[in-house]
Amino acid sequence: MKNSAITIKHLKKIYAGGFQALKNISLDVPKGAFFGLLGPNGAGKSTIIGILCSLINKTAGSVEIYGHDIDKDWSEAKKNLGIVPQEFNFNIFEPCLQIITNQAGYYGVPYPVAKQRAEHLLKELGLWDKRYTPSGKLSGGMKRRLMIARALVHQPKILILDEPTAGVDISLRRSMWTFLEKQNKNGLTIILTTHYLEEAEQLCETIAIIDKGIIIENMNKVDLLKKMKCETFILTTEADCIGLPQIDNASLIKNNDGDIEVVVNDALSITKLISDLEKQNIIVKRIQNKSSRLEELFVRMVES
């Protein structure tokens, strides 16, 4: 399709041992999208990514990247991809600058241009001071940023991030989000797999959920969240309440911290819930989601 960055049709993968990782998957990632690919461990996310970047051979089906078939026109297809893998895979003795310029060279970028781009990216990602440091001596967060710089140096149209913020502290994670959002606004299509569903909820506009090798959901994030029939909140009350009232379309329990955990059906508004509690002399001081909305929906979908 003309507006597709990636088109996957009837993709199957059976590994040598007979394990079927992907069962006839079809997926379309629009150009310019920030696309989330979510699923539990072993669901098939990394297999899809592996096939896209040709590290894994598919068993059946077809994949097109910016209109280029990965079997017939793989060289052109690959030029459009930048990959940030899950595991660090640098030569630990190579300095950062060399890693980036080499990667550019593998994509046909001449050395002087590669050096300029590497300087720009390393500066933007806060790694310029470490340009001569061997990658093995970098901290975990620096290695993550170096992987992003390496994936972007040949200026791909699609960036695939396989759990890019695993093991990264919260402030660095947020700065990486800002960087990625900026890249996306500049037209880069981003495919993100992550275990931090808060991350997917914050960044992605389209989300596909995969489980046991099958896509169980694939839609706009807003529409996906509308599918939530109920949501869980934690209410902190002014005074410790002894008994819990019965409220229609809600079920209340007291958690170990003395707060009230309430599962609210979508037929009941939060305003109505709070006013009903007030009528029972329970004054709500604070209210918060138990987990991110996407996380709650994800757990329900995968468990069902």
Binding site: L81, I83, N102
Partner: peptide
């Protein structure tokens, strides 16, 4: 083998190099 072991062989395999 070192590139295989450290998986930085992937840098080459994902690239358009033949």
């Amino acid at each position: 083998f070192s590139a295989k072991f450290q998986r930085n062989i992937d840098e080459l395999l994902v690239s358009p190099m033949k």
